[in-house]
Design a protein around this nucleic acid. Structure first.
Length: 892
DNA sequence: CACTCCCGCCAATTA
DNA sequence: TAATTGGCGGGAGTG
């Protein structure tokens, strides 16, 4: 009866009692104790207006059982009606109205009407998105359940998800506190950071796994740590406060929800398919992905997705993959978050202290970057989680098996499993379509993802997060074998002592600054300390000695790889460069906003640092690191593709140099390389976002430019001295670029300052054809190989540069540029799948796909090849060389 | 038939 | 011990 009333509901029943109503009403019952309110208690009080009150009252009055019964009876959706009547919220109504229309229907509510998503909307409608801080809204589960006419179980589903996002917190039994969205951005930010770490790592690990089984052991180690990190997710809770709530263990639903959200935040595409998410989320690692388990996971994900959808954070979409269409969800919530994480950071600062096996890894990565800040943040999370865990345990007293279990699982196991899954996924994805699956991209290019995410903010914060993740993964990704070592090295190195890590290879010169930054395509750029490449080469040798370890890895590792390496490289031999690198990075960052000119100038100067625009130094550094990572990862992915890169670099460089002159004009023809797979490893380039002013072109400047190259540039354009690569923005978009800040000696001829100006000038993009990417290398410009010159490096003369590595020749057809200076980093332009530039057929090449996913230029080349190349090239690089290759035709 | 995901049993945890 | 939470998966509704 009540139910029916609802529609009519007149305001009449003032009596209604129910606290529920009150609570529901926006107001909340501030006063209520955290203590679990008694459901029953409330009844007596009537609510004036809520028509539903009657219902509520009834419900409340009734014992739980009664409630249930009533609910059932009510089924008919009285709830909705009632609520509607009660609250002004429109959302709910729709259905209601309809239902009203047909009573029958009401009675027999369709499944949709009962959906969790709808229920969640109703639930949310009850509370203000941004409640006044002063007033605390408490939510009584019983009330809500009765009001909404659903079982309490369903409310748990909603509340758990909301709790994971900190929209609510558990205050006491049966009682939750409504926080609204005030902290949502912060929470998301945290999740993003955590996600980057976790998944980035995962990605890495995955790659490793994929790549090398043998490495697995190492990987696992890494992963493990990662996994531990995972707890991070939980971390937020502590912040949240409602400590009491914390006591509860982490429930899978909560954790799953956070992880799920993290996936979105980490993914470039912002789209996550359910199956991928399920795989990733399957706890505990294991490969044993029972089918049933998978199914269950998917069910849960639907539950979560429904709630998130109601929150307006995601929306359902379908991803069409090779196999067919898959259900997926797209993140439509905020992507950037104001940096509030500071708080967290503060907590986290302890990071160093944290032992972290897991963290350690992260930290190391981070540290390498310098991103203490970043690090800290991460750490904070980590630390926080542990704390929570501790708390929980404590609170629980004896212990809660579950808690432990969950915690453990979540943390480590899951991570591992996730990683595994991710790896699998990545593979699949790669195989499949690059574009579609975000996850894939994410997974595959874990690194990338983070970057992508990162780009936006540009804040230091932003930097921090991405870097670590990116870095690691990259390494691994790049070369499996290498990666391992790399990773290891990275880990080994202290986070705190980023430099150290670098040093490993070479000298620690720049410790703090990292050579490379990865930027998401959108934003931009990258940098690297390319010059150092030389160093790299040097390092390589060392590596050779060691052979095995990280050193080797580093050496082997393509530029992309190693940020660290780069650093090392830089530090070691040519150390000077290192400093530059950071600057470059910074520049790049800045550049993103700014037009190319900025970047260029700086580079030329060699001391990028100087350039640096104010500000972002730190962040830039971080980014750099990330970039490296990205690169690496992609590389790894490409590993399959492998090869391609090395030679290219040289060529590219040469081309670039050549092109430079032409660049300005629509370079396109000349240099256009459709595929741009750039893998600028060692050679470093600064990438300027197209947006900046360049119409659609992206510029890559090589940090490394060989002096000679510079000179070349000078020919026509003094400013140009800096080698650059221009790529169509579109192409780049997806790819991360790495730039090396430092140019070593490049430009003697031109004063630093001058360069900048000049450079900018040179580049005037006016002429540049939008479509075609142009590469300009100081040394040489690479011309697009539109024409098929597949395997060859035709262009290049014989510079030793080629030496190298067979770089991309492979199918990919990516064009590679070698910067002379570079240590041999070949830069591979990832294939741009852009249609326009066609010559290259990225498509043809599978690897290409991978590349695409990763988008990281670096990714393309095989690590090994790169390594080889690097070594060779670097030296060669000194001489100007350029190379373009169209991989598509002939792989090696 | 596949996708969704509601429903509610029942175990774990808490009070 | 009773109540609260929440994992889990059967199986129904939808398209």
């Amino acid at each position: 009866e009540n139910i029916f009333d609802r529609s009519r509901m007149a305001p009449k029943t003032p009596i209604k009692n129910e606290p529920i109503d009150l609570s529901k009403q926006k107001g909340c019952t501030p006063e209520r104790n955290p203590i679990t309110p008694v459901k029953i208690i409330d009844r007596p009080q009537p609510d004036p207006w809520t028509p539903t009150a009657n219902l509520k009252m009834l419900v409340s009055a009734a014992s739980p059982d009664m409630r249930d019964r009533e609910k059932k009876k009510e089924l008919f959706r009285p709830i909705e009606n009632s609520e509607q009547s009660d609250t002004p919220d429109p959302l709910q109504y729709d259905i209601v109205d309809d239902s009203t229309v047909d009573e029958f229907e009401k009675q027999r509510p369709s499944r949709k009407q009962k959906s969790l998503g709808l229920l969640c909307q109703k639930f949310l409608a009850r509370y203000p998105n941004y409640p006044l801080s002063t007033e605390k809204t408490t939510i009584s589960l019983d009330e809500v359940a009765s009001i909404l006419g659903v079982e309490r179980r369903r409310i748990y589903d909603i509340v758990n998800v909301l709790e994971s996002l900190h929209l609510v917190s558990r205050v006491a039994k049966n009682q939750y506190c409504w926080h609204g969205r005030h902290n949502l951005s912060q929470t998301l930010k945290m999740l993003q950071e955590a996600g980057e770490l976790q998944y980035g790592e995962l990605m890495t690990s995955q790659h490793k796994e994929q790549d090398l089984e043998y490495k697995s052991g190492e990987q696992k180690k890494e992963t493990t740590p990662d996994s531990q990190d995972r707890p991070l997710l939980e971390f937020s809770e502590p912040d949240c406060t409602s400590a009491s709530a914390n006591s509860r263990k982490d429930k899978s639903l909560r954790i799953m929800s956070q992880k799920f959200v993290m996936l979105f935040l980490v993914s470039k595409t912002k789209i996550v398919t359910l199956d991928i998410a399920a795989k990733i989320l399957i706890e505990e690692t294991q490969d044993t992905v029972d089918h049933s388990k998978f199914k269950t996971k998917v069910r849960r994900l639907y539950d979560i997705a429904n709630v998130l959808t109601s929150l307006g954070l995601i929306k359902k979409v379908h991803v069409t993959e090779e196999r067919g269409r898959k259900p997926a969800f797209k993140w439509i919530g905020p992507l950037e978050f104001p940096g509030k994480t500071d708080e967290l950071r503060g907590h986290s600062q302890t990071s160093d202290p944290l032992p972290g096996t897991q963290r350690g890894a992260c930290a190391q990565y981070q540290t390498s970057v310098t991103g203490k800040q970043r690090f800290t943040r991460h750490t904070s999370f980590n630390s926080a989680q542990p704390c929570e865990a501790a708390r929980r345990k404590v609170s629980s007293e004896p212990n809660s098996p579950r808690q432990e279990r969950q915690a453990c699982i979540v943390n480590s196991d899951e991570n591992c499993s996730k990683m595994i899954n991710l790896a699998a996924v990545c593979r699949q994805k790669i195989e499949e379509d690059t574009g579609e699956m975000i996850l894939n991209s994410a997974k595959n290019s874990n690194i990338t993802l983070p970057f992508s995410l990162l780009p936006v903010p540009g804040d230091s914060d932003f930097c921090v997060n991405p870097l670590p993740q990116a870095v690691f993964p990259v390494v691994q990704a790049d070369v499996p074998s290498f990666s391992l070592p790399i990773s290891i090295t990275s880990q080994a190195s202290h986070p705190s002592t980023p430099a150290a890590s670098k040093t490993e290879n070479g000298k620690p010169t720049l410790v703090p600054n990292q050579p490379f930054l990865c930027f998401p395509s959108s934003s931009l750029f990258m940098l690297c300390g390319g010059l150092q490449e030389n160093n790299l080469s040097e390092t390589l040798p060392t590596a050779g000695d060691v052979g095995n370890r990280s050193a080797e890895a580093q050496a082997a590792v393509p530029p992309a790889f190693c940020q660290k390496r780069s650093f090392h490289k830089c530090s070691s031999p040519s150390a000077p460069v290192d400093d530059e690198e950071p600057a470059a990075k910074k520049q790049t960052l800045e550049q993103s906003d700014l037009p190319l000119s900025l970047v260029v100038p700086k580079k030329p100067s060699e001391s990028p640092k100087a350039e640096p625009s104010p500000g972002s130094g730190c962040s830039s550094a971080v980014h750099l690191e990330t970039n490296h990572l990205d690169l690496a990862s992609p590389a790894a992915a490409e590993a399959a593709n492998k090869e391609s890169t090395k030679p290219l670099d040289c060529q590219e460089q040469e081309k670039q140099s050549q092109n430079k002159d032409t660049d300005e004009p629509p370079p396109g023809n000349e240099h256009i390389a459709k595929e741009n797979a750039n893998q600028p490893f060692q050679p470093q380039y600064l990438y300027v976002q197209p947006t900046a002013g360049l119409s659609s072109f992206n510029f890559l400047f090589s940090a490394n430019q060989a002096p000679g190259a510079i000179n070349l540039a000078t020919n026509q354009l003094p400013s140009l001295s800096v080698p650059c690569v221009m790529v169509p923005s579109a192409a780049l978009a997806s790819f991360p670029f790495v730039c090396s800040p430092s140019f070593t000696s490049p430009l003697s001829p031109v004063p630093d300052g001058s360069f900048s100006a000049a450079v900018s000038t040179n580049f005037s993009m006016s002429s540049l054809a939008s479509a075609t990417p142009v590469f300009i290398s100081t040394t040489a410009v690479v011309t697009p190989k539109v024409s098929p010159a597949p395997s060859v490096d035709p262009q290049q003369p014989a510079h030793p540069t080629l030496h190298l590595s067979p770089v991309l020749t492979r199918s990919c057809s990516a064009v590679k540029l070698d910067s002379p200076v570079c240590v041999g980093h070949p830069v591979t332009l990832l294939k741009l799948q852009q249609p326009s530039s066609a010559p290259l057929t990225p498509k043809s090449i599978r690897p290409a796909h991978h590349e695409a996913f990763f988008k990281t230029p670096g990714s393309l080349g095989d690590p090994v090849a790169w390594k080889k190349n690097e070594g060779n090239q670097t030296r060669n690089a000194s001489s100007v060389q350029r190379r373009l290759e169209i991989s598509s035709t002939s792989p090696d």
